[in-house]
Design a binder for these strands. Structure first.
Length: 564
RNA sequence: UGUCCGAUGGUGUAACUGGCAACACAUCUGAUUCUGGAUCAGAAGAGUCUAGGUUCGACCCCUAGUCGGACAACCA
């Protein structure tokens, strides 16, 4: 039988998939696909890492392969278990499983040491006694060749002896390094006798004080991939120039060679993505922590109310290529709206209330109105919303002197109250001093209750509302983009990214919600009808709920308004 | 004045590997709607960085430029 789904063209392959498929076709590595996600545990993961995670795990999944999680923990002075834990939590939360393949570069310190010895014995590596500044100074520049170290031609015996004594802890930090002996005049800076090992008398989060010399990333990374028999080492563009070094190392040590493929990292508008800058925002308290809902970190997005599905879908949509890119946040927002529109239960709540009094509604009467929990998902059923004489509606939903495009409440005009009656505005009460509207008087049409025949009457606007005496007061945090410019990394002369922070990225207000919200649990997402999607924040207490706005609904009225 | 990489609508990614450019987001119209949401239908928007060349035919191959990015931590 023909597979009907094949009728519709499959999503075209990205360049990495093409490479992998070619390798499979040619039977490389017995057509095996094995990738890895190799974070350094020195910070929290962000949406850029999510792209890489989805890519690596996604590729393995697509080609029936495997993906390892490996911590590149070769620099104990910067790394910490706090980060290890958060990284694992985030990868898992995103929906990926590394099975029993959790590794650490530090697992390989013994093996790596042996590899170094091999290089020394082959005369391909030597101990250099120059201080850091001198090594740097003799490295040359991209356009000018470097100078050879005076220690470059030590004998194999001497190098072996010195390396052993480095390891034994005989020398203080910074006094000696192991360097590869390649070519000080190579046009590729990374080939100018790169440092392989340095002395660091620092406790390592896993190996404790077993080592006082640690391999450099360039030495550890490719070899770790080799040890794990990774078939395709997917990494970002900046490592492209390192590849010749990795190839050299692998060839000289004579071990299994993975294939490295570089792709362009993700850039998102109106935010920053570098760990250093993110750390700065946290340390200098511009945000409240790594999981501040304004942060592009995975934990920040999670707290903001993003779902793993929406992020995975985002990673899929943006694609993979080699050219530098800047993705518009509106695409991320599209992804979460699309997901939450289908998932989130609806609830009515007013954030900027103004009182509505239904003059012809019986004084003490309360009706339980029936409303769909989620119109996009009939199976979710209905909920009861209490209706009474005094209500709150959104202050912006009323205008005394409206333009004709305004479909909401105004003197003499009719609107529908969602899931309730059609009401007509009769008069307005104002504060004599401030002239602010304090109450709107309306009449309701008894025959227009939802479901009744007369309720089919056409009215232009439908408003959300909440019964004043039944409203549950909650705290609401309205988030906006963290920066006011699309590309804060690209600061003009004399400024830095922090000069572009959005002072209004967080606004805290009270919200008045329908009573059904009382059962809300931390992490649950709701659509506040006509307002946006909100998630219950972990700061919530039993009697005081705190909501984070994930993203507002698309608002074409605001767009019309904005055009003026 | 080095090496490596890249260049397709506003943004991102495609184009069956040479047959006159598609999809998504954003934008705009209209329909529909008890969310100015969602949904549905449609429109506009690039002739593929430039100049040569190969070819019946080039986004795709070649040459030379232009522009952009990465690389000079004992960071990863």
């Amino acid at each position: 039988m023909k597979d009907i789904q094949n009728e519709k063209p499959a999503r075209s392959r990205n360049f990495i998939e093409e490479i992998i498929e070619e390798d499979i076709r040619e039977g490389k590595n017995d057509s095996r696909v094995h990738t890895r996600f190799p974070p350094e545990p020195n910070g929290y993961l962000h949406i850029g890492h999510a792209k890489s995670i989805c890519l690596n795990f996604g590729l393995a999944d697509k080609y029936n392969g495997l993906t390892n999680l490996r911590f590149d923990d070769t620099n104990p002075v910067k790394e910490d278990v706090e980060y290890v834990d958060s990284i694992m939590e985030d990868v898992r939360w995103l929906g990926f499983d590394w099975g029993d393949r959790l590794y650490y570069a530090s697992d390989y310190f013994g093996q790596l040491y042996e590899y170094a010895v091999i290089l020394i014995k082959k005369g391909k590596a030597y101990i250099c006694d120059m201080p850091a500044e001198e090594i740097s100074a003799t490295r040359g520049t991209p356009t000018r060749p470097g100078k050879e170290s005076p220690y470059r031609n030590r004998t194999v015996e001497e190098n072996l002896d010195l390396f052993g004594r480095m390891r034994a802890g005989e020398f203080p930090d910074g006094t000696r390094v192991l360097r590869a002996k390649i070519d000080m005049s190579s046009p590729n800076m990374h080939m100018r006798d790169p440092i392989l090992y340095r002395i660091l008398h620092t406790n390592h989060h896993r190996t404790g004080d077993a080592w006082c010399i640690y391999p450099m990333y360039d030495f550890a990374h490719g070899e770790s991939d080799s040890i794990e028999r990774i078939t395709h080492s997917i990494c970002t563009l900046e490592f492209e120039v390192h590849r010749p070094l990795y190839d050299w190392l692998i060839r000289e040590i004579d071990i299994y060679a993975p294939r490295q493929i570089e792709f362009a990292r993700l850039n998102l508008s109106y935010t920053v993505m570098s760990k250093r800058k993110l750390l700065e925002l946290v340390k200098e308290k511009y945000v409240q922590g790594w999981d501040d809902p304004r942060m592009p970190t995975i934990c920040g997005l999670r707290r903001r109310g993003y779902t793993p599905e929406s992020i995975r879908n985002f990673a899929d949509i943006i694609g993979v290529a080699k050219r530098d890119n800047m993705i518009d946040v509106s695409l991320l927002e599209f992804c979460i709206r699309e997901d939450l529109n289908k998932q989130a239960n609806r609830v009515m709540g007013v954030l900027n209330p103004v009182k509505v009094i239904i003059d012809n509604y019986p004084e003490r009467q309360v009706e339980e109105m029936e409303a769909a929990v989620n119109p996009e998902n009939p199976e979710a059923g209905t909920r009861k919303v209490p209706f009474s004489k005094e209500l709150y509606i959104e202050r912006e939903d009323f205008m005394e002197d409206p333009p004709n495009k305004f479909f909401r409440l105004a003197p003499g005009r009719e609107v529908r109250l969602r899931a309730a009656y059609i009401i007509k505005c009769e008069s307005v009460e104002k504060d004599p001093v401030t002239n602010e509207i304090t109450a709107i008087h309306c009449y309701y049409d008894v025959n227009t209750k939802s479901g009744m025949p007369d309720s089919n009457r056409k009215v232009k606007g439908t408003l959300h509302w909440v019964s004043a005496s039944h409203a549950v007061e909650v705290d609401v945090r309205l988030y906006d983009r963290l920066f006011v410019v699309p590309d804060p990394d690209n600061a003009e002369e004399g400024k830095n990214f922090k000069d572009y922070l959005n002072p209004d990225s967080l606004t805290e207000v009270k919200g008045y919600l329908e009573p059904s919200i009382r059962d809300a649990k931390i992490g649950e997402k709701y659509q506040f009808e006509r307002l946006g999607y909100f998630v219950v924040d972990k700061d919530s207490k039993a009697k005081s709920l705190v909501f984070n706005r994930v993203v507002p609904l698309r608002d074409s009225w605001a767009r019309i308004e904005g055009q003026k």
